[in-house]
Computed example of a mutant assay.
Amino acid sequence: MVDYQFLNAFKFKTGLTLKNRVVMSPMTTMTSFYNGMVSTDEVNYYAARAAGLGMVITGVANVTESGKGFEGELSVASDEMIPGLQRLANAIHQNGTKAILQIFHAGRKSNHKILRGEEPVSASAIAASHPADSEIPRALSNKEILHIIDSFGQATQRAITAGFDGVELHGANTYLLQQFFSPNSNQRNDDWGGNRQKRMRFSMAVINETLKIAKKSPRPFVVGYRISPEEIETPGIRLADSLYFVDQIKDLVNYVHLSMGSYKRTSLNDKTNTQTILSQFAELTKEHLPLIGVGSVEKASDANAVLADGADLVALGRELLREPQWVQKVIAGDEESIRNTISPVDMNELAIPSVMQVYLQTAFKSVMNFTTDPNAPVDYQNTLAPMEGGKKEH
């Protein structure tokens, strides 16, 4: 067996130790019950993939009912959710794997149907540029903003109670945390908007509230932050903005997780910047906090390349749908048997929930490497992928 660095253990400053550096990237299952409670299909899906990994990050869980972004979404908005979340954490914990609950508020990436007649909310009353039928959200009041910040703290406490080892703040893929930082979606003229520093205020308040609660955990607990490096809209977040953001939080949170369709990506907006985005963030985070690299990691050589480019941990998403035993096969020296394609016929056997199967074969078809798809897989090195908030999305 090749001596791969990603199979080495890793320890966070909080004391949380991972048996290896391979992470399951958060992926939407759309399989929770109508009210956000965990379903058995969801538990089985994670259980089928968790054992070999160092850490599993769940798909998003909303922190308030107004934060729901799609049907079948996990929720951590009330204490009623704790028993189901406990089952989920237990399923992930097999063989010492650590469990991270990703938490968020969808903001304007929702609609009145999903919110049962309520208007979506955001930093400003500006509709998203895509999909074309995006609804104009209602601008949040100061009181509502403070309530959402508090809700992130309450969600963190529920994650601790349910037995998770950390939370990841989803500040990527054009959801509310990103909406407040973006000059595209945040055009407020109060203390929550304006220049770049003021647009950071909401994210910083959420981070600080979450950290305050995390410190009360009786066991090692981490708080991570996921970020999308760039937006393609004008005005919008540029790479320099995201590097600035990470520079401000690098001594606060416990890790930073990039959201990109390809780990090889260079800037989408500045074609003169030919350095990989991953390595540019690594220069900032080195010796401060761990960086999770991600994006089209399929083979062990890809995982190696991510660490060689400066990441401390490597996340696999779609590849773990195709190959739940990825880590075990690498450890066994059986890399030739790792599946980099997936047959629709095998999805039940792979414990992929039925509703998830539908959108993988529709909105996400171009990124899944289906054996029945005559088209070559789309390379997301130079464009946004659907899971990043690109134009093809659920």
Rank of each mutant, 00 (worst) to 15 (best):
V2Q: 14
Y4C: 08
Y4P: 02
Q5P: 15
F6N: 06
F6P: 04
L7Q: 04
F10H: 14
V22D: 06
V22H: 05
T28D: 06
T29F: 06
T29Y: 05
T31M: 05
S32C: 15
M37D: 15
M37W: 01
S39P: 11
T40H: 09
V43R: 04
R49Y: 00
A51T: 13
G54I: 12
T58N: 01
G59W: 10
V63W: 04
T64D: 08
T64I: 07
S66Q: 12
G67Y: 04
E73L: 01
E80I: 02
G84Y: 09
G84L: 09
G84S: 13
L85S: 05
R87D: 07
N90C: 07
N90K: 14
N90P: 07
G96M: 11
T97Q: 06
A99T: 00
Q102V: 00
K109V: 12
I114C: 08
I114Q: 09
L115H: 10
R116N: 15
V121S: 10
A123G: 01
A125L: 03
I126Y: 02
P131Q: 07
S134L: 09
R138P: 02
R138V: 13
L146S: 06
I148L: 02
I149F: 11
I149L: 10
D150S: 09
A155M: 02
Q157E: 14
A159I: 03
G166L: 02
V167L: 05
G171P: 11
Y175E: 08
L177Q: 11
Q179A: 10
Q179V: 04
F180R: 05
F181R: 07
F181D: 03
R188P: 02
R188C: 06
D190Y: 12
D190K: 11
D191L: 15
G193A: 00
G194E: 12
R196M: 12
R199S: 10
M200T: 04
F202A: 06
I207R: 13
T210E: 10
L211D: 03
L211W: 01
I213G: 03
V223R: 00
G224S: 12
I227G: 00
E231D: 11
R238H: 13
D241C: 05
I249V: 15
V253P: 02
N254G: 13
Y255V: 01
Y255I: 04
R265I: 03
S267M: 09
L268H: 03
L268P: 01
L268K: 02
T274K: 15
T276R: 14
T276I: 08
A282S: 14
E283Q: 15
L291M: 09
L291Y: 04
I292V: 15
G293R: 09
V294P: 00
G295C: 00
K299I: 08
D302G: 07
D302L: 10
N304V: 03
A305Y: 05
L307R: 14
D309C: 00
D309Y: 01
G310Q: 05
A315K: 04
A315S: 15
L316P: 10
G317T: 14
P324H: 12
W326P: 08
G333I: 08
E335N: 07
R339S: 14
T341N: 02
S343F: 11
P344C: 10
A351M: 12
P353V: 13
S354L: 09
V355F: 00
M356W: 05
Q361M: 15
S366D: 13
V367M: 14
M368V: 01
T371W: 04
D373G: 09
D373F: 11
N375S: 11
T383A: 14
M387E: 12
G389W: 02
G389K: 03
K391E: 13
E393T: 13
